[in-house]
């Protein structure tokens, strides 16, 4: 062992021993985003601007610039990431156009010593951090909630998303796993609502006549709960427990029902503010903290007590959102670490 390697080893040990020592106030973080064309993405960018703007003002980091590609194409985003390397950013937070086609550019960034944190649209390159959504759990949780409300079980109606999309398969697999776990429930029918209220309303109205009278719950994927409620109301059926998906119209309807007849349900989805979670994770990595490569996004759950507060902060036509704090990120990191 030469003196230099010994010195390096000593520094490495020191760095491990004193993880909170690194200062990130001179560090610059960039957001590489592939698409901004819907309300979820708009909310995501707004949350980023709000939280990172504050972090820059507070001197936590030196800069946190957001970049969105114009055409939602992987090659374009790869070029964007390479430009970020050139601009000397210390970390890149990434919502990727493709899980694989950016791997080359991500590798270049890692080789240049840049921390890459992908979220929502994650990348498979091993050197990047991934903050993924556990869609299966999102489906399973709904059945679990229903089993708490109705221990005796019953018939369920499943509203699926857009056929052939990975997210639809995952959530549905989770719901079916939930039914297996709580066998007192059975799925009496399932329709595709395409994550849109009007499509869901038509689909549910179409299947209702063929369903048994005792549908006790509707398991959903988000963006379809309000449509399902309209269809049940129009058919003059008893209103089942419909799981909501954090959309403003769904929350509004839930509140009206609660005020009128004490209707109870829950609502679950992913908050667009997950971009801010990714920001804090990147900051923590720059700070020298031990962070597992794979983390799971917490769901944003709204229960009966939180309904009014959630509805107040959700813009009409929007999605309930939450911005994450440094402490939230630390909690997610700690949880991800123990799960591995």
């Amino acid at each position: 062992m030469t003196t230099t390697t010994r010195l390096m080893a000593a520094t490495a040990v020191l760095a491990l021993a004193a993880p909170a020592f690194a200062d990130t106030s001179e560090r610059r973080i960039a957001l590489s985003n592939n698409y901004a064309g819907n309300s979820w993405r708009q909310a995501m960018l707004e949350s980023w601007t709000k939280v990172t703007g504050q972090a820059v003002t507070d001197g936590v980091v030196a800069a946190a610039d957001a970049f969105t590609t114009a055409e939602n194409q992987a090659t374009e985003q790869a070029a964007q990431i390479q430009n970020m390397i050139l601009e000397g950013y210390d970390a890149i937070v990434l919502n990727a156009a493709s899980p694989t086609a950016l791997n080359g550019a991500v590798r270049e960034a890692c080789d240049a010593g840049i921390v890459v944190v992908s979220f929502d649209g994650i990348v498979t390159e091993p050197c990047a951090y991934r903050i993924a959504v556990d869609f299966k759990e999102m489906g399973r949780k709904q059945v679990e909630y229903l089993s708490g409300r109705m221990p005796e079980g019953g018939n369920l109606l499943e509203i699926r998303g857009l056929a052939g999309v990975f997210v639809d398969d995952e959530i549905s697999a989770g719901i079916h796993a939930g039914v297996e776990q709580f066998p007192q429930f059975s799925i009496a029918g399932s329709v595709h609502g395409d994550w849109a209220q009007d499509v869901a309303q038509r689909a549910v109205a179409g299947i209702l006549p063929s369903l048994p009278d005792d549908i006790v719950g509707v398991v959903t994927q988000g963006g379809d709960g309000y449509g399902a409620a309209q269809a049940f109301a129009a058919a003059g059926r008893t209103m089942p427990v419909i799981i909501m998906g954090n959309r403003q119209d769904e929350l509004q309807w839930w509140k009206e029902q609660r005020d009128a007849n004490g209707y109870e349900t829950m609502s679950v989805s992913i908050a667009p503010g997950v971009s801010t979670l990714a920001f804090w994770v990147a900051q923590q990595v720059l700070d020298g903290q031990q962070v597992p490569q794979d983390l799971i996004v917490p769901f944003l759950e709204i229960n009966q007590d939180g309904l009014d507060a959630a509805l107040e902060t959700t813009p009409a036509g929007g999605v309930a959102n939450v911005e994450y704090t440094l402490d939230d990120a630390k909690a997610v990191i700690a949880k991800g670490g123990s799960a591995n």
């Binding site: 194409q73 992987a74 694989t100 086609a101 791997n103 080359g104 390159e125």
Partner: peptide, 17 residues
């Protein structure tokens, strides 16, 4: 060349071309 740079592919990788 594109795969060599990206290290993997995607059915929509080169639509802009």
């Amino acid at each position: 060349a594109l795969v060599g740079l990206a290290t993997s592919a995607d059915a929509n990788i080169a639509l802009r071309y």
